[in-house]
Amino acid sequence: MDIEPFSIAIPEADLADLHERLARTRLAPGLPGQGWSEGTDPDYLERLLAHWRHGFDWRAVEARLNRLPQYRARIDEHTIHFVHQPGSGPDPLPLVITHGWPGSFIEMEAIIPLLADPGAHGGDPADSFHVVAPSLPGYGFSSRPAHKGIGPYETAGLWKTLMEGLGYPRFGAQGGDIGAGVSAWLGQRFPEQIAGMHLNMIPGSLRPPGLDRREPTQEEQDYLRRMAEFQDKEGAYAHQQSTKPHTLAAGLYDSPAGLAAWIAEKFHTWTDRDVDFDTLLTNISLYWFTGTIGSSFRMYVESRARPMAPQEAVKPPLGVALFPGEIAMPPRSWVERCFDLRRWEQMPAGGHFAALEQPALLAEEIRAFFRPLRGR
């Protein structure tokens, strides 16, 4: 596996092109009092785009992100971008932490130092991790898949190869959204190498063993009802991205306003409070400059083709953090039928982008879960 250091350096011509497109934006008119009821609030979008054009400083963001130790690794046909922050402690545990959609490795910026060097942030140095935060295939500075068939299942294999190439034959896995699916597949495919899995979301495609032979409990029936309601009211994005992604990508790849509207709606809906414009635009800009919105949809296509339905419980220990602003989560009984569940914690604040919204809360929860597993 070839690994080389990486620094972000967006060409000046790309910045100029973005500003020119923003200057020529033609916004769709809304109705008085429409707000967020039918998608992204038109007034909010107008303010967001004005800030992107006049107030957002990508070069300052770029310089800050380049303080992270970034690399790119060649694994078979893929080039995988990742942050690798060695831990500061007596015996750091390797940990691969994976983002989802419409997020990116940027979600991990604040939590990486909390995990790698807890002693410098009020924690116990014995809880340190060697942190590896990759960009999913087709996201950010990782290469786009050249063919069909690269989803969470296959990404788990890439992460195993990456971690072994870094000298980490045994490691923990953490993630939310698509990252939760990748982490769960790591546990299912490579149980002897995974010290434990910590998730802040349960993959929506997860189906317990024997579901068709056992009557769901009342809690499980309530969960299935909530999921059906979510799919009816909020699930159009996922259906489009998993069935006709290229039609959508054609518009979002060409229009920064369209891209911003598509991503901003999810950050608004899936968080328990709005993130600030600069944070949101950092993530949106990454999708724009790398041209990866279309390739990011592939994970939805592939997850639909290969849902997670283990035939028996996944062996490595599992911990789950439940954030109040998260998308509908299954009850504990549903998860216990699929995993060796060791920890199930209700969190006081935060939503879908937990590492971005509440890095200190999530970091402490990850430390607590892995504390008894370090010597396995």
Results as ranks from 00 to 15, higher is better:
314 V>M: 02
246 H>R: 14
109 E>G: 06
6 F>M: 05
89 G>F: 06
29 P>N: 11
171 F>R: 03
336 E>L: 11
130 H>Y: 10
362 L>W: 08
241 Q>N: 14
231 Q>L: 12
234 E>W: 13
225 R>E: 13
3 I>M: 11
170 R>C: 08
315 K>C: 03
283 N>L: 07
321 A>E: 07
286 L>R: 04
310 P>H: 01
371 R>C: 13
234 E>F: 15
113 P>Q: 06
175 G>R: 00
192 E>I: 01
255 S>T: 14
356 L>S: 08
230 F>S: 13
12 E>A: 15
339 F>Y: 09
56 F>T: 13
4 E>I: 11
354 A>I: 04
259 L>R: 01
105 F>C: 04
285 S>N: 07
356 L>N: 05
222 D>K: 04
176 G>K: 02
242 S>K: 09
226 R>H: 14
214 R>W: 05
243 T>Q: 09
367 R>D: 04
14 D>Y: 15
57 D>V: 01
95 L>I: 01
105 F>K: 02
2 D>Y: 09
10 I>Y: 03
255 S>G: 15
51 H>A: 10
306 R>A: 00
230 F>K: 13
336 E>T: 11
194 I>A: 08
187 G>L: 00
164 E>V: 09
41 D>R: 02
218 Q>I: 13
282 T>V: 05
269 T>A: 14
311 Q>A: 08
286 L>H: 06
221 Q>W: 04
3 I>G: 12
262 W>Q: 08
25 T>Y: 05
96 V>H: 08
184 A>Q: 13
6 F>I: 05
227 M>Q: 12
312 E>N: 09
124 D>W: 00
356 L>C: 07
109 E>Q: 14
181 G>E: 00
66 N>Y: 06
74 R>Y: 07
337 R>N: 02
261 A>T: 10
49 L>W: 14
363 A>T: 14
313 A>E: 08
217 T>P: 01
22 L>S: 08
42 P>A: 11
29 P>T: 13
294 G>M: 06
313 A>P: 07
296 S>Y: 10
279 T>Q: 11
197 M>G: 00
350 G>Y: 00
111 I>N: 14
309 A>C: 12
155 T>C: 07
164 E>Q: 11
30 G>A: 11
171 F>I: 10
257 A>H: 11
61 V>L: 06
253 Y>L: 15
126 A>R: 14
23 A>P: 09
305 A>P: 05
352 H>Y: 05
348 P>G: 05
334 W>D: 02
249 A>E: 07
97 I>D: 03
119 G>I: 03
362 L>Y: 11
13 A>D: 15
43 D>C: 08
165 G>D: 12
49 L>P: 15
15 L>P: 14
53 R>T: 08
239 H>W: 11
224 L>A: 15
293 I>Q: 03
173 A>S: 08
315 K>G: 04
361 L>E: 08
159 W>T: 01
373 L>N: 09
43 D>I: 13
201 M>V: 09
